[in-house]
C-alpha cells in the first residue's frame, strides 16, 4: 500500500490540486458567476508563496496562507469591476482580468518575468492538500445547508426573485467570487511547492479548459458533483496517458459534447437523478417487505437537502 502510494504520489498530489481548481470554478458557478478567472488566481497564489519563500525566506505555511490572502484580495478588487456584468460578458471580464494578471507577472522584474521562479522549497505533503480539500468540503456543506445556500442558489436561478425577497445578489456573488479566488490561489500555492518550479506559461488555456470540463461535467447543484467528476476524469486521464495527448483530448472533447447534449446539468442533472432513483428502486426491490412503494408515504427528509 505504502509502496503504491510512493509510486503514485506525484499523480495523487497533482490530482488533488486539479480538483481544488475545479472546486474553485464550481464555487463561482454555484452563485451564477461564470468565472473563467481561476487560472489567474492560481498564478497569484503560486507566485506569492514562491517569492515569499525563496526571496524572503518565509516559512512555507506562511507563504501559502499569504497566497490565499492575496488571491482573495485580488478577487475582491476584480469582483468590484466585473460583477456589474452578467452572463457571457462576466465570463469574458473574468477571463480578461486573469490573463492581464498573468501578463503582468511576465512583464515585471520581481517575479523574474518569463523565466519564472525556481528552487521553491518542496514541503507540501499529500495530507496538506487533502486536508485543505476536506476543510473546503465542510465549509461548502455548512453553506449549503444554511439560508446562505438557498440564497446563493436563488441568485443563480433567478436573480430578480432573489432581489425581490431582499437578498443582496451582488454581495452573494462577491462572496462566492472571493472564495473561488482564494481556493484557486490555494491550489496554485500548493502546486508551486509541489513542482518547485513555476513560470507564467504554465497557467495557460489548456489548464483552464481541463478544469472547466471537470466542473461542467460535475454540474453546479452540489459540491459532490465536481468532486466526483474530477476524481473520475483524472483517473480516466491517467489511465489513458499512454495513448497520447491527441487521443486523450479527442476523448475529452467528445465527452464534453455528449454531456452538454444528454445531461446539460452535469452530474446534478435531473436525468441522472431519475436514473439513480430508478436504479435504487430496482436494486432494493428484492429486499423490500410490506406494501408496494407507492402505497407507502415516504418520510419527508428535508434536512438532507
Amino acid at each position: 500500500m505504502l509502496d503504491w502510494f510512493q509510486l503514485h504520489r506525484f499523480i495523487i498530489d497533482t490530482a488533488l490540486i486539479t480538483t481544488l481548481i475545479t472546486m474553485s470554478i464550481f464555487i463561482a458557478f454555484n452563485a451564477g458567476v461564470m468565472s473563467l478567472g481561476s487560472v489567474g488566481f492560481m498564478a497569484v497564489g503560486g507566485y506569492t508563496t514562491a517569492i515569499l519563500t525563496t526571496k524572503h525566506g518565509w516559512p512555507v505555511p506562511f507563504g501559502i496562507v499569504s497566497g490565499i490572502v492575496v488571491g482573495g484580495v485580488l478577487a475582491f478588487l476584480f469582483g468590484l469591476a466585473v460583477l456589474r456584468l452578467s452572463g457571457i460578458y462576466l465570463a469574458l471580464g473574468t477571463f480578461a482580468l486573469a490573463q492581464a494578471t498573468i501578463i503582468f507577472i511576465q512583464a515585471v522584474d520581481f517575479t523574474n518575468g518569463v523565466h519564472g521562479v525556481i528552487r521553491i522549497p518542496r514541503r507540501v505533503t499529500t495530507v496538506a492538500s487533502l486536508g485543505g480539500l476536506l476543510v473546503l468540503v465542510v465549509v461548502l456543506q455548512l453553506i449549503r445547508k444554511s439560508h446562505y445556500g438557498r440564497a446563493l442558489r436563488t441568485v443563480r436561478l433567478d436573480n430578480v426573485v432573489a432581489l425581490g425577497l431582499g437578498i443582496n445578489a451582488r454581495r452573494y456573488q462577491m462572496f462566492a467570487f472571493v472564495l473561488s479566488g482564494m481556493v484557486a490561489s490555494f491550489a496554485g500555492a500548493l502546486e508551486a511547492h509541489e513542482s518547485t518550479v513555476i513560470s507564467p506559461s504554465q497557467y495557460n488555456f489548456t489548464l483552464l479548459t481541463i478544469a472547466l470540463t471537470y466542473a461542467m461535467v460535475g454540474g453546479v447543484e452540489h459540491w459532490a458533483g465536481p468532486l466526483v467528476s474530477a476524481g473520475l476524469l483524472i483517473t480516466f486521464r491517467e489511465w489513458t496517458r499512454s495513448s497520447g495527448t491527441d487521443k486523450q483530448n479527442l476523448a475529452f472533447g467528445i465527452l464534453l459534447v455528449v454531456v452538454l447534449l444528454v445531461i446539460p446539468g452535469g452530474l446534478a442533472d435531473k436525468r441522472i437523478k431519475q436514473v439513480r432513483t430508478w436504479l435504487w428502486r430496482t436494486l432494493s426491490t428484492p429486499f423490500r417487505r410490506g406494501p408496494e412503494p407507492h402505497a407507502a408515504v415516504p418520510e419527508p427528509d428535508s434536512s438532507l437537502v
Binding site: H147, R150, A151, R153, T154, L157, D158, V160, V161, L165, G166, I167, K270, S302, V305
Partner: peptide, 19 residues
C-alpha cells in the same frame, strides 16, 4: 410566475423568510 421550479414548496416559501 417565478418559482424555483425544482425546489419543494417549503423551500420556495423558506426563501421568503431569508431576512
Amino acid at each position: 410566475l417565478r418559482l424555483l421550479e425544482q425546489s419543494s414548496v417549503l423551500e420556495n416559501v423558506l426563501l421568503g423568510r431569508h431576512q
